[in-house]
Each structure stands twice: as structure tokens, then as C-alpha cells.
Nucleic acid binder design. Structure first.
Length: 544
RNA sequence: GCGCCCUUAGCUCAGUAGGAUAGAGCAACUGCCUUCUAAGCAGUGGGUCGGAGGUUCGAAUCCUCCAGGGCGUACCA
């Protein structure tokens, strides 16, 4: 049992004894040290209910709860009726021991054990290389997957794509025109075609393979397919470089092939949610409380993105995942409310579908704002970014802010000042520890001998231990709230606690017993830093 | 017009379910390397938490209105 659990249990016992129900017990982490490690506002909450002075209730609480040295060392009342609990050192040492025993497992939990989750992200159509815009979604999705796995979920990373339709036709046509240029023909390259350099590269590849044999080929099929192949290979390489792989690439086309698309229309029609107007098929969202209806099949006979999206989400639910996560950029914000409305109207449980929207990445080149667009030539690819600043910095930057905050990414700064980057601050803490451990090894200090942890008494030591002990809760809250940046902030703070400790406390010194205890402490810190960075997909270097 | 997100120190952002004196990094200024990595530590200055009401013991946090910015609001995805 943790100290937190002990306190909650005791508070609950207090409520039970007075037959009070319907109150959820919340423990807070006070900002200031003098207010203890955990604080309860129960007395304040109960004041009105019991028609008593909160201070008096707090006194009763204090008298009621036994000071069990295994968990807490004292209870204090402060302010208007806060009840502050101080974790006992016995508890902290026990937990520190636990970290050293659990090693790379420390931080994992079982709240999601036996559950499955599917995360769909990136999902860029194969019309060009991944850009920085995709990068944020990619890193968020992968990190969320890692976090969910850490709390016990079995996770499927999924990439949904569409290799048919207008975009792909333009892609094929763009490549064909570039190819003709290489064959020495004069061509007019339309403005709304894909302008990027990569199109020329693809054409060049085809030219190398086929010479001018396709010169009079008017069917774009070959150009389109070959372009898709090359682009997809590139995307997969980029993803691999970022540090993960997708488990499933789901082709929108399969929804058509298996009749899922028609099925959705029919089922919506049965619900009276379909109408034909102006040669198009409309989804009557107005009947579901929206302000206007939406077209799901254009008068050309081509479905809009909404229809396959609905079918795809129905499939996801049918596949039986306990948790289904979609990660979109803010520009797709309009696409999901009516999709979910349709899924719900067809009788499926949409509560398990979580749509996460991340705000845009604005790229700066110094003071200059860089506009990005795949169609136009000017974009910075994820690969280029990784070339410049490395994978660790890339991932860290995408993760360090909450996803609903706009991300300003100053490329010039990231390149130039990468030494001052916060990710190095965290990695540096890890490297410093490794360096001390290495020294301990050359001094032949036995790390496996049982250290007397009770020798750890300095405030810097106690603060470090407290922060280490908190790690599993951070992982859990990051996973369950879908907020990876919490872990980033935690690790940054952990590095601060370590650096402070390092400055004040010499690890390897004259007192062998103390050295051993401190080695145990930093080894635990090393484990937590490594586990935490691992969850972020960032390396934990031995030296820098 | 409508929907979603944002507005906190000069700049970039945290602020974990409403809690105690609002935090960090960068930038500015001042100290600390003969000792395990100074990519570090300590300190100083810097704020009407966009504005106005409301809810209550208590609001940066919840509600309403207003202002500013971003993204949408397609028979594009």
C-alpha cells in the first residue's frame, strides 16, 4: 500500500463511521514543503454538510487517523481546515528499495490490464513526404501508445490511408508531366499540381528504370502506383527513424471492396437519415441536432471523406477495442462530430472513441514564419528536421507542450542552440549518474551490497526520493488523460532535483556506508530517468 | 454568423479534479569549477493570470458576456 492509499483508506473510514456518503476523497499535493506531502480538504468540504467549523472537523480527523509510521510521520492542521500529512521516511526508504527491485518495470501499472486500445494517427495520404505538421501527431500518437502500454493496455498503432481519388490522380498526373520533361518534352505544369521537388525525384527514378518507354503512355496508372510505392516507402522510413512502427496500415479501399460503404448508406437510410437532393446523397445531420445536412455522396458518384470515415469507425468499434483514439490536427476539427453522430445513430457505443485534436505547429525560421503546404513546394519535411536537430530533440519539442497549445518551432533556434535545449538538461542528469556509477565500479564499491538507506537524510536526498516515488502516478495520469507532456514536465523536474542533489551531496566520499546509500539513490534516479525517457522515445545516454 | 482551441513575467510555456504567498525555461544582472561531467547550482529584478460580471469559505481554473489571435464551417481530405 502506498502512503496515499493509506490516507485515503483512513479518510474513507472516517466517512463511513459517520455514515457520510457521496463524497469523493481527493488528496492534493501541496505546493509548499511545509504543508506536507499530501493534503486533504475533506474538512472544508464537510463543513457545510455537518454544519460545523472546518477547523473542528479537521481536529476530529487528526484524532481519528492513526499515525502509522510505515506510511506517515505526522498530521497537521493548517489554514482554514487543511489536513496535511507528512510521509514517513520509513515509507520513502521502502519505496526507494522497491524502485531498485522493479528496475525497468518501475512506473508500469495494471490499470489497463486486459484492455485493448487502438490509436489511429498520422494517416497522411501517400501524396508526399511527412512534414513537420505530421510530426507532432506522429510523436504524440506513439508516445501515447507507449504510455498506454505501460499501464497495461495492449495497443494497436494504426495508419489509415486512401490511395484513390482526386488527390492521387493529380499525383500521378504530376509525376507523368515531370517524366515527360525528363524525356525532353515541353510541358505546361499546372499550378494546382504537386510542385514539390520530390515529384521530380520520383520521375527521375522512373526515367532511370524505364528510359523514355512510357513517353506516349497517357494512362497515369503506372505513374500513380510507382509514386505511391516510393512515397510510402519514404514515409515508413521516416516513421522508423522516429522510433516506432505501425501495426496496421488500413486502406480505405478495403471498405469499398468489402461492401462496408454501401452498407453504411443502407443502414442510415433505414434510420431515415438519408435523402437524395440535387443528384447527391445527403446525410441528414440536422435530424441529429446539427445546424445543417452534409453530403456523403457527391453528384459525381464519389463519396465525400465522411462516408468512409463513418464506415471505418464502425469497423473499429466492431473490432472490439476497449479504447479507440483518433489523433487529428486542428484543421480536421470539423470532420469528427458528424462522423461520431453517425456511428452513434447506428447504435454503437461512441464513448470509447476519444478524439484528440492537436493544435498547429508554426515553424519559424528566425523571426520569419514559414508557411507549409504539401501541394506547394515550400515545406520542411520531418526527415529534414531530424537531420538538423536529431530524433531526441524532435520528439522532445513535439511533446513538451500540451497538445491544445500552438507550438512555435523556431528552426534556427533549434539548430543553433541545441546545446541549451531542455532535453539535454534531462539527458545530462542521466549521463552524470552513469559517470558516477562508472567511477564507483573502478573504485570497486559493491553496488549489490545492501545499503543503509536510512543514512539518506539531507533535504536534497529526501526531495529526490519523494519525486522518484511519484513516477508511477505520473505515467498513469499521462496515459489516462492522454497528456504525454505531463511526463515531460515531470522528468524535467526530476532532473532539477537530481542536479540540486548532485551539487550539495558528494556521492563517492570517505564514508563508505553513506556512499553506498547515495549510490543506491542515484541508481534509482537513473532507472526512473531511463524509464521515463524510454516512454517518450528519447534516448538516455551514458555520457555526453 | 456558427463551432473548436488559445490569451498567465520582455519572449516561449507549465499550473495535474476550484485550494494556502501564481511557477519554470530563455533573455538581463550577480556569485560558485584543485574534488563524481559548469550541458550544472545559488541569487536579483520582472505579473491588475486579456477585460467585466457571477457561482462559494476560496477562482488562473467553473458559468455568462465582451475583446484579441488561430483553425474550421465544401458536392477538398
Amino acid at each position: 500500500m502506498t502512503t496515499q492509499e493509506y490516507i485515503i483508506q483512513q479518510l474513507q473510514r472516517f466517512l463511513d463511521a459517520r455514515q457520510i456518503s457521496g463524497i469523493e476523497i481527493i488528496l492534493e499535493k501541496p505546493k509548499e514543503e511545509k504543508f506536507g506531502d499530501f493534503a486533504s480538504t475533506l474538512a472544508l468540504q464537510l463543513a457545510k454538510h455537518l454544519k460545523k467549523n472546518p477547523r473542528q472537523i479537521a481536529e476530529e480527523l487528526k484524532a481519528f487517523i492513526p499515525v502509522d509510521e510505515r506510511y506517515i510521520s505526522r498530521i497537521e492542521i493548517a489554514g482554514p481546515g487543511f489536513v496535511n500529512f507528512f510521509a514517513s521516511k520509513t515509507y520513502l526508504y521502502t519505496q526507494l528499495r522497491k524502485i531498485l527491485e522493479e528496475k525497468e518495470r518501475f512506473g508500469q501499472s495494471a490499470v489497463g490490464k486486459g484492455k485493448t486500445a487502438q490509436i489511429e494517427f498520422v494517416s497522411a495520404n501517400p501524396t508526399g513526404p511527412l512534414t513537420i505538421g505530421h510530426g507532432r501527431g506522429a510523436v504524440l500518437g506513439d508516445t501515447l501508445a507507449r504510455l498506454l502500454q505501460a499501464v497495461g493496455y495492449k495497443v494497436t498503432r494504426e495508419y489509415y490511408f486512401n490511395n484513390a481519388g482526386r488527390q492521387m490522380r493529380i499525383l500521378g498526373e504530376s509525376v507523368r508531366l515531370r517524366y515527360l520533361e525528363l524525356c525532353g518534352e515541353k510541358v505546361e505544369f499546372p499550378e494546382d499540381y504537386y510542385q514539390g521537388e520530390y515529384i521530380i525525384d520520383i520521375a527521375r527514378t522512373i526515367f532511370k528504370e524505364k528510359g523514355d518507354a512510357l513517353k506516349s503512355e497517357t494512362d497515369i496508372a503506372y505513374f500513380k502506383d510507382r509514386a505511391e510505392q516510393i512515397i510510402f516507402t519514404g514515409i515508413k522510413n521516416t516513421i522508423r527513424r522516429l522510433g516506432f512502427e505501425f501495426d496496421v496500415f488500413y486502406n480505405e479501399k478495403s471498405l469499398y471492396d468489402e461492401g462496408k460503404i454501401d452498407e453504411i448508406i443502407e443502414r442510415l437510410r433505414e434510420k431515415g437519415l438519408i435523402a437524395e437532393r440535387d443528384g447527391a446523397v445527403w446525410f441528414l445531420t440536422s435530424k441529429l441536432g446539427f445546424d445543417q445536412d452534409r453530403v456523403i455522396v457527391k453528384s459525381s458518384g464519389e463519396p465525400t471523406y465522411r462516408l468512409p470515415d463513418i464506415a471505418y469507425h464502425v469497423e473499429k468499434v466492431k473490432r472490439g477495442f476497449d479504447l479507440i483514439i483518433d489523433i487529428f490536427g486542428a484543421d480536421h476539427i470539423a470532420t469528427y462530430p458528424d462522423v461520431l453522430a453517425a456511428v452513434k445513430a447506428l447504435g454503437y457505443d461512441v464513448d470509447r472513441i476519444k478524439v484528440l485534436i492537436h493544435q498547429f505547429v508554426t515553424l519559424y525560421e528566425g523571426e520569419e514564419k514559414v508557411k507549409m503546404s504539401t501541394r506547394k513546394a515550400n515545406f520542411v519535411t520531418l526527415d529534414e528536421l531530424m537531420d538538423e536537430v536529431g530524433v531526441d530533440v524532435t520528439r522532445y519539442f513535439f511533446l513538451m507542450r500540451s497538445m491544445n497549445s500552438h507550438l512555435n518551432f523556431d528552426l534556427t533556434l533549434a539548430k543553433k542552440q541545441s546545446e541549451e535545449n531542455p532535453v539535454f538538461y534531462i539527458q545530462y542528469a542521466h549521463a552524470r549518474i552513469c559517470s558516477i556509477l562508472k567511477l564507483a565500479e573502478t573504485r570497486k564499491i559493491d553496488l549489490n551490497a545492501t545499503a543503509d538507506l536510512a543514512l539518506l537524510q539531507a533535504p536534497e536526498e529526501i526531495n529526490l526520493i519523494k519525486h522518484l516515488v511519484h513516477f508511477p502516478q505520473v505515467v498513469e495520469s499521462g496515459a489516462l488523460n492522454y497528456e504525454p507532456h505531463r511526463l515531460v514536465n515531470y522528468l524535467y523536474d526530476l532532473a532539477t532535483y537530481f542536479h540540486k542533489f548532485y551539487t550539495e551531496c558528494r556521492v563517492i566520499g570517505d564514508d563508505l556506508q553513506l556512499s553506498r546509500a547515495r549510490l543506491a539513490l542515484i541508481d534509482a534516479a537513473r532507472l526512473v530517468l531511463a524509464n521515463g525517457l524510454g516512454l517518450l522515445g528519447i534516448t538516455a545516454p551514458d555520457h555526453m
